[in-house]
């Protein structure tokens, strides 16, 4: 090998994409809608921010079509913080994804929180240099997204509710699905792949290793430090917090407390101090009281 080849860069490999997801373990990714919120998040210790026009609670309240954010707003946030900046594109909207990539976004969230652009297909994420994160409710959905090229998975929960029950349901379902694969006979795995609608090779890999091939985070409904710690205890490797911070009484304090709680998720004595005097949490909406049509976790195919 000559000197020239040594200095050749190979940009945006699968290893660098999953590598960034690895770097985001153990921390909190916060939804922000402007520069002030991005700075509050960064000062509280957010490891990344998700730039979007409205937090999920407002998208839910306002109705209408939710789309990718204005590039000017995203660029202002990119200029204001040094931590990674993520942004959302609509499910299947590969042009929004291309625009976000051209903006130099660090991670694209192909998100059910926005109004889907394609009711059958997701973005073919392998075609992109930028890494993608996608939501899932179970293992089949997770493996379809990884098959399309997602470098990170997050369980969906029910965004914008402040109710952690769906986040718990999806994380438990995913973990149960994974555990089940590890005890099945090899001859059963093709049928499992068929039933889950998941790529066979990925089913084999999960059955062998007992874990997803990419990092697995949690989203949708976290409102308190205890919620965040709960999700880590249930197997989340990091936590996305949307409306839970900037819809609360004291966002800076709560943001910092949630960061600390993810780092000390298994230490109740420290969690006591972390959870003290945080002001009012977001008031929220109980998922059990919602009609099926109001839920957004069902978006994604």
């Amino acid at each position: 090998m000559n000197e020239q080849l040594w200095s050749e860069r190979q940009p945006a490999t699968w290893r660098t994409k999953v590598g960034l997801a690895e770097m985001l373990k153990g921390g909190v990714i916060m939804d922000v809608v402007n520069v002030e919120q991005a700075q509050i998040a960064a000062e509280a210790g957010a490891q990344a921010v998700m730039a979007l026009e409205r937090v999920p609670a407002d998208i839910r309240a306002d109705g209408g079509v939710a789309r990718m954010s204005d590039p000017a707003m995203i660029q202002d946030i990119q200029a204001a913080v040094t931590i990674p900046v993520m942004a959302k594109c609509r499910i299947g909207h590969f042009v929004e994804a291309e625009i976000l990539q051209a903006l130099g976004i660090d991670f694209v969230d192909e998100s059910e929180v926005l109004t889907p652009a394609d009711e059958k297909n997701h973005v073919l994420k392998h075609d992109f240099k930028v890494p993608f994160v996608c939501g899932c409710r179970n293992l089949g959905e997770a493996l379809r997204r990884i098959g399309e090229g997602a470098a990170m998975i997050r369980t969906k929960g029910e965004a914008g509710t402040g109710d952690v029950v769906e986040a718990v349901r999806h994380m438990r379902t995913l973990q149960d699905d994974i555990r089940r694969l590890t005890v099945l006979g090899r001859e059963e795995l093709m049928t499992v792949a068929k039933e889950m609608g998941a790529p066979y090779e990925l089913v084999l890999e999960v059955a062998q290793r007992g874990r997803l091939p990419v990092p697995n985070f949690s989203a949708g409904g976290v409102a308190t430090p205890a919620d965040a710690a709960l999700m880590v205890r249930l197997g989340a490797e990091a936590v996305f917090v949307g409306s839970g911070i900037f819809k609360s009484g004291d966002p800076g304090k709560r943001a910092r407390a949630i960061v600390d709680a993810v780092a000390h998720y298994d230490d109740p004595a420290t969690l006591v101090d972390i959870s003290r005097d945080l002001g009012a949490p977001m008031s929220g909406q109980s998922v059990a009281s919602m009609a099926e049509g109001e839920k957004i976790a069902g978006r994604g195919w």
């Binding site: 040594w6 050749e8 940009p11 490999t13 290893r15 590598g19 960034l20 990674p84 976004i105």
Partner: peptide, 27 residues
């Protein structure tokens, strides 16, 4: 640069000898 500029490259480290180390550079 940002994440889209993250890359891999072979890094020659004299005290570790051959082969070069595969450097994974992420942001």
């Amino acid at each position: 640069g940002t994440q889209v500029d993250s890359f891999e490259a072979d890094i020659h480290v004299p005290r570790l000898g051959d082969p070069p180390v595969r450097g994974v550079f992420i942001r």
